[in-house]
Simulated scan of single mutants.
Amino acid sequence: MVLVPGGTFTMGSERFYPEERPLRRVHVDPFRIDATPVTNRQFARFVAETGHHTQAEIAPDPRDYPGMLPEMARAGSLVFRKTSGPVPMEDVTQWWEFCFGADWRHPYGPDSDLDALDLWDHPVVHVAWPDAAAYAKWAGKELPTEAEHEFAARGGLEGQEFAWGDELAPGGRMLANYWQGLFPFSNTREDGWERTSPVRSYPPNGFGLFDMIGNVWEWTADWWAENPAKALKAKKAGDSCCAVRNLRGGKLKDSFDPGQPQVRIGRKVIKGGSHLCAVNYCQRFRPAARHPEMIDTSTSHIGFRCVRRN
């Protein structure tokens, strides 16, 4: 783990997506954070010692999902499938498939495995939020808050869009694993990778942390709030003179997906973007980027890392 010094920083961005606004001054106390996302090798040790079964390995109970077709009540997870050509960008079902038998041991589907693909030092994926929380508890750690993750990702830089500055690929250098080309059908792989990459494949940021943006999204401890200002406890949420100390995210009641009112499963904040973020789609390979994810959902592009406080 790496010790991240405490400090006050400007959280958020006004250049990209509305959920990243407003800019707010936040103070975080010192904490330690994993230098890399948790790898398949590390997660395998946790499973071996605890016998943990991930959400993706357990068939869902149709009673928890009104309207679920009986044939869908099978274990599996969401796997990205590259399309053969341009597709409507508002329809994520064009590139996401719920794949029966996909899980952390079989990241691309039931016929894939970590040994054959040499993925032991890649970030573990197909972990839902309860799986990440269970690992953190076993390791004597916790999941980071959204503010801690963003502060760590910035690496000591103030107001810069990326973990190394304001230019995505300075001098043509690939400094993170993200999608080059036109998503979701043409990946030029200038960074060398079609999917996840081994941790430490790219230079660390100013705090000595790897993959804080790109590679995989990372779970945080915070419930989602559409407008981060709701979580501010200062008298004037948008007043930059008032730094909120150790900011925590939204409340459970605000985190439900308004598009699925019948499914009362809250959403947590994920941070950092992934290898599927592209310039033409989801420019969230940035410290300020944030996104909601249902806590029961696992995918081929979400992982996590842990922190220790005090």
Rank of each mutant, 00 (worst) to 15 (best):
R200I: 06
H27V: 08
R24K: 11
D254I: 07
G109Q: 07
G214S: 11
S77K: 03
R21Y: 05
G206S: 10
P130G: 08
L23R: 00
F183V: 02
Q55E: 13
I270V: 15
P123W: 01
L247Q: 07
E218F: 02
G249F: 01
R286N: 07
M294L: 15
P198R: 01
G155E: 07
E194L: 15
E150I: 01
E71H: 13
V47A: 12
A288V: 00
D91G: 02
I58S: 13
C241P: 00
R32M: 13
F100D: 12
K230Q: 12
R74Y: 06
V216T: 13
G85Q: 12
L175M: 14
E158P: 00
R32G: 05
E194R: 15
T196C: 10
A136G: 07
G67T: 06
D254E: 15
L114K: 02
F151H: 15
F162V: 05
G250P: 04
G266V: 10
A75D: 12
D222M: 07
G249S: 11
P287A: 10
Y202M: 09
E293H: 15
G159F: 00
C241R: 15
Y135C: 02
H106Y: 05
R267F: 11
P203W: 08
P37D: 06
D239Q: 05
T299Y: 03
A133P: 07
E49L: 05
R248T: 13
E19F: 07
P66M: 09
P70D: 09
G208V: 09
D61C: 07
P130E: 09
A169Y: 13
H291P: 00
D254F: 09
S197L: 03
A229L: 09
G12W: 00
A133R: 15
L209K: 03
R200V: 07
W129D: 00
K230A: 07
C277Y: 01
V47I: 12
W164Y: 12
E71V: 01
T8V: 15
W120H: 14
N205R: 10
E20Q: 10
